[in-house]
Protein backbone atom coordinates (compact mmCIF):
# COMPACT_ATOMS: atom_id res chain seq x y z
CA UNK A 1 0.00 0.00 0.00
CA UNK A 2 1.21 3.46 -0.74
CA UNK A 3 0.23 6.46 1.31
CA UNK A 4 0.72 10.19 0.72
CA UNK A 5 1.26 12.43 3.73
CA UNK A 6 0.57 16.14 3.08
CA UNK A 7 1.75 17.98 6.18
CA UNK A 8 3.78 21.20 6.51
CA UNK A 9 5.06 20.34 9.95
CA UNK A 10 7.90 18.24 8.57
CA UNK A 11 8.74 16.64 11.88
CA UNK A 12 5.21 15.32 12.23
CA UNK A 13 5.21 14.11 8.63
CA UNK A 14 8.46 12.22 9.25
CA UNK A 15 7.04 10.57 12.34
CA UNK A 16 3.85 9.52 10.58
CA UNK A 17 5.80 8.20 7.60
CA UNK A 18 8.09 6.22 9.84
CA UNK A 19 5.17 4.75 11.76
CA UNK A 20 3.37 3.74 8.55
CA UNK A 21 6.52 2.16 7.11
CA UNK A 22 7.55 0.39 10.30
CA UNK A 23 4.32 -0.97 11.58
CA UNK A 24 2.10 -1.24 8.50
CA UNK A 25 4.73 -1.84 5.87
CA UNK A 26 3.34 0.93 3.70
CA UNK A 27 5.23 2.93 1.16
CA UNK A 28 5.00 6.60 2.12
CA UNK A 29 5.55 9.86 0.25
CA UNK A 30 5.46 13.27 1.88
CA UNK A 31 4.53 16.71 0.60
CA UNK A 32 4.95 19.84 2.72
CA UNK A 33 2.42 22.06 0.98
CA UNK A 34 -1.05 21.74 -0.50
CA UNK A 35 -0.12 22.39 -4.10
CA UNK A 36 2.62 19.74 -4.30
CA UNK A 37 0.40 17.33 -2.40
CA UNK A 38 -2.52 17.81 -4.78
CA UNK A 39 -0.25 17.31 -7.80
CA UNK A 40 1.25 14.11 -6.38
CA UNK A 41 -2.16 12.75 -5.47
CA UNK A 42 -3.51 13.52 -8.91
CA UNK A 43 -0.78 11.82 -10.89
CA UNK A 44 0.25 8.94 -8.60
CA UNK A 45 -2.04 6.14 -7.48
CA UNK A 46 -2.15 6.28 -3.74
CA UNK A 47 -4.17 3.98 -1.55
CA UNK A 48 -4.71 6.71 1.04
CA UNK A 49 -3.97 10.37 1.60
CA UNK A 50 -3.24 11.78 5.06
CA UNK A 51 -3.92 15.49 4.84
CA UNK A 52 -3.22 18.37 7.21
CA UNK A 53 -5.90 21.06 7.19
CA UNK A 54 -3.75 24.16 7.72
CA UNK A 55 -1.28 24.22 4.87
CA UNK A 56 0.64 27.00 3.20
CA UNK A 57 -0.62 27.85 -0.27
CA UNK A 58 -3.55 25.57 -1.00
CA UNK A 59 -5.10 24.52 2.32
CA UNK A 60 -6.45 21.09 3.20
CA UNK A 61 -10.02 21.96 2.25
CA UNK A 62 -8.76 23.17 -1.11
CA UNK A 63 -6.87 19.92 -1.65
CA UNK A 64 -9.95 17.82 -0.86
CA UNK A 65 -12.11 19.88 -3.21
CA UNK A 66 -9.50 19.80 -5.97
CA UNK A 67 -8.97 16.05 -5.82
CA UNK A 68 -12.68 15.23 -5.70
CA UNK A 69 -13.28 17.56 -8.63
CA UNK A 70 -10.59 15.67 -10.52
CA UNK A 71 -12.53 12.46 -9.77
CA UNK A 72 -9.73 11.12 -7.56
CA UNK A 73 -11.37 8.48 -5.37
CA UNK A 74 -8.47 7.83 -3.01
CA UNK A 75 -9.66 7.85 0.62
CA UNK A 76 -8.62 11.03 2.47
CA UNK A 77 -7.99 11.14 6.21
CA UNK A 78 -7.73 14.72 7.47
CA UNK A 79 -5.47 15.67 10.36
CA UNK A 80 -5.90 19.01 12.04
CA UNK A 81 -5.65 21.04 15.20
CA UNK A 82 -8.97 22.74 14.51
CA UNK A 83 -11.54 20.73 16.39
CA UNK A 84 -14.77 22.50 15.52
CA UNK A 85 -17.72 20.38 14.46
CA UNK A 86 -18.55 22.80 11.66
CA UNK A 87 -15.12 22.26 10.13
CA UNK A 88 -15.50 18.48 10.38
CA UNK A 89 -18.90 18.56 8.69
CA UNK A 90 -17.63 20.88 6.00
CA UNK A 91 -14.65 18.65 5.31
CA UNK A 92 -16.59 15.43 5.16
CA UNK A 93 -19.21 17.06 2.91
CA UNK A 94 -16.40 18.22 0.64
CA UNK A 95 -15.33 14.60 0.19
CA UNK A 96 -12.95 13.75 3.03
CA UNK A 97 -13.47 10.25 4.47
CA UNK A 98 -12.32 10.56 8.04
CA UNK A 99 -10.98 13.02 10.52
CA UNK A 100 -8.40 13.00 13.33
CA UNK A 101 -7.78 15.89 15.71
CA UNK A 102 -4.23 16.82 16.68
CA UNK A 103 -2.63 15.74 18.91
CA UNK A 104 -3.68 12.24 17.86
CA UNK A 105 -2.59 8.77 18.83
CA UNK A 106 -0.31 7.09 16.30
CA UNK A 107 -2.00 3.75 17.00
CA UNK A 108 -5.40 5.22 16.20
CA UNK A 109 -4.00 6.81 13.07
CA UNK A 110 -2.64 3.44 11.91
CA UNK A 111 -5.91 1.64 12.66
CA UNK A 112 -7.99 4.22 10.81
CA UNK A 113 -5.56 4.20 7.91
CA UNK A 114 -5.87 0.44 7.51
CA UNK A 115 -9.64 0.48 7.94
CA UNK A 116 -10.04 3.17 5.28
CA UNK A 117 -7.89 1.20 2.85
CA UNK A 118 -9.83 -2.04 3.53
CA UNK A 119 -13.14 -0.33 3.02
CA UNK A 120 -12.02 1.39 -0.17
CA UNK A 121 -11.09 -2.05 -1.47
CA UNK A 122 -14.51 -3.40 -0.60
CA UNK A 123 -13.19 -5.73 2.10
CA UNK A 124 -14.23 -4.43 5.50
CA UNK A 125 -13.06 -7.51 7.42
CA UNK A 126 -9.47 -7.38 8.66
CA UNK A 127 -8.82 -11.04 7.79
CA UNK A 128 -8.95 -12.15 4.16
CA UNK A 129 -9.26 -15.80 3.16
CA UNK A 130 -8.46 -17.40 -0.14
CA UNK A 131 -7.20 -20.84 -1.20
CA UNK A 132 -7.16 -22.02 2.41
CA UNK A 133 -4.90 -19.14 3.36
CA UNK A 134 -5.88 -16.63 6.07
CA UNK A 135 -4.28 -13.22 5.65
CA UNK A 136 -4.47 -11.05 8.77
CA UNK A 137 -3.95 -7.45 7.66
CA UNK A 138 -3.61 -6.21 11.23
CA UNK A 139 -0.90 -8.60 12.33
CA UNK A 140 0.40 -8.85 8.76
CA UNK A 141 0.59 -12.63 8.96
CA UNK A 142 -0.45 -15.41 6.58
CA UNK A 143 -1.60 -18.77 7.87
CA UNK A 144 -2.23 -22.02 6.10
CA UNK A 145 -4.39 -23.94 8.55
CA UNK A 146 -2.53 -23.76 11.85
CA UNK A 147 0.86 -22.98 10.38
CA UNK A 148 2.21 -19.52 9.68
CA UNK A 149 3.72 -18.93 6.27
CA UNK A 150 7.04 -17.16 6.66
CA UNK A 151 6.96 -14.25 4.17
CA UNK A 152 9.32 -11.31 3.78
CA UNK A 153 7.68 -7.85 4.24
CA UNK A 154 7.68 -7.21 0.49
CA UNK A 155 6.23 -10.66 -0.27
CA UNK A 156 3.49 -10.06 2.26
CA UNK A 157 2.71 -6.65 0.76
CA UNK A 158 2.45 -8.11 -2.74
CA UNK A 159 0.07 -10.81 -1.50
CA UNK A 160 -2.02 -8.31 0.47
CA UNK A 161 -2.28 -6.01 -2.51
CA UNK A 162 -3.37 -8.82 -4.80
CA UNK A 163 -5.94 -9.99 -2.26
CA UNK A 164 -7.44 -6.53 -2.13
CA UNK A 165 -7.87 -6.70 -5.90
CA UNK A 166 -9.33 -10.15 -6.54
CA UNK A 167 -9.96 -11.19 -10.17
CA UNK A 168 -8.04 -8.19 -11.46
CA UNK A 169 -4.77 -8.44 -13.34
CA UNK A 170 -2.26 -6.24 -11.55
CA UNK A 171 0.63 -5.02 -13.66
CA UNK A 172 4.21 -4.93 -12.44
CA UNK A 173 4.07 -1.15 -12.79
CA UNK A 174 1.01 -0.97 -10.53
CA UNK A 175 2.69 -3.15 -7.94
CA UNK A 176 5.75 -0.94 -8.07
CA UNK A 177 3.67 2.16 -7.66
CA UNK A 178 1.77 0.85 -4.69
CA UNK A 179 4.56 -0.88 -2.86
CA UNK A 180 7.40 1.57 -3.18
CA UNK A 181 7.64 5.27 -2.50
CA UNK A 182 9.91 7.75 -4.25
CA UNK A 183 12.85 6.87 -2.07
CA UNK A 184 13.20 3.57 -3.93
CA UNK A 185 14.57 2.98 -7.33
CA UNK A 186 12.10 1.28 -9.57
CA UNK A 187 13.16 -1.99 -11.07
CA UNK A 188 10.50 -4.28 -12.31
CA UNK A 189 12.78 -7.34 -12.01
CA UNK A 190 12.77 -6.74 -8.24
CA UNK A 191 9.04 -7.41 -8.35
CA UNK A 192 9.54 -10.53 -10.46
CA UNK A 193 11.97 -11.95 -7.93
CA UNK A 194 9.65 -11.25 -5.00
CA UNK A 195 6.63 -12.70 -6.80
CA UNK A 196 8.44 -15.91 -7.69
CA UNK A 197 9.55 -16.31 -4.04
CA UNK A 198 6.02 -15.65 -2.84
CA UNK A 199 4.51 -18.12 -5.29
CA UNK A 200 6.96 -20.82 -4.20
CA UNK A 201 6.34 -20.33 -0.48
CA UNK A 202 2.56 -20.36 -0.86
CA UNK A 203 2.63 -23.46 -3.05
CA UNK A 204 4.68 -25.29 -0.43
CA UNK A 205 2.06 -24.52 2.19
CA UNK A 206 -1.27 -24.64 0.43
CA UNK A 207 -0.39 -27.00 -2.38
CA UNK A 208 -2.06 -24.86 -5.00
CA UNK A 209 -0.81 -22.03 -7.17
CA UNK A 210 -2.23 -18.89 -5.54
CA UNK A 211 -0.60 -16.24 -7.69
CA UNK A 212 -0.97 -16.54 -11.45
CA UNK A 213 1.32 -14.87 -13.95
CA UNK A 214 -0.47 -13.49 -16.98
CA UNK A 215 2.30 -13.19 -19.50
CA UNK A 216 2.99 -9.66 -20.65
CA UNK A 217 0.26 -8.18 -18.43
CA UNK A 218 0.99 -8.92 -14.81
CA UNK A 219 -0.25 -11.00 -11.90
CA UNK A 220 -3.58 -12.15 -10.61
CA UNK A 221 -4.87 -14.00 -7.60
CA UNK A 222 -5.84 -17.45 -8.92
CA UNK A 223 -9.58 -18.09 -9.10
CA UNK A 224 -10.52 -20.57 -6.39
CA UNK A 225 -11.68 -23.87 -7.89
CA UNK A 226 -15.45 -24.25 -7.71
CA UNK A 227 -16.42 -25.93 -4.47
CA UNK A 228 -13.05 -25.29 -2.85
Amino acid sequence: MRVLVIEDETRLAENIAEALRESAGFAVDCADNGKDGAMLAEFQHYDLILLDLMLPGLDGMGVVEYLRRKACSTPILVLTAVGSVATKIELINAGADDYLTKPFDLGELLARTKALIRRSRGAPQPTLAVHGLAVNTIEQTVRAGERYVDLSPTEYRILEYLMFRPRVIVSKQELLEHLYDFTWEHHSNVIEAHVSNLRRKLKEQSGSSVVETIRGRGYRLAQPEPGA
Partner: peptide, 14 residues
Protein backbone atom coordinates in the same frame (compact mmCIF):
# COMPACT_ATOMS: atom_id res chain seq x y z
CA UNK B 1 0.46 24.32 20.64
CA UNK B 2 -1.66 21.41 19.46
CA UNK B 3 0.64 20.94 16.51
CA UNK B 4 3.70 21.10 18.76
CA UNK B 5 2.12 18.58 21.14
CA UNK B 6 1.17 16.35 18.20
CA UNK B 7 4.79 16.30 17.06
CA UNK B 8 6.12 15.42 20.49
CA UNK B 9 3.45 12.81 21.02
CA UNK B 10 4.03 11.14 17.69
CA UNK B 11 7.78 11.12 18.29
CA UNK B 12 7.24 9.33 21.59
CA UNK B 13 4.66 6.90 20.24
CA UNK B 14 6.94 6.02 17.40
Amino acid sequence: LKTAVAVTKSSLQL
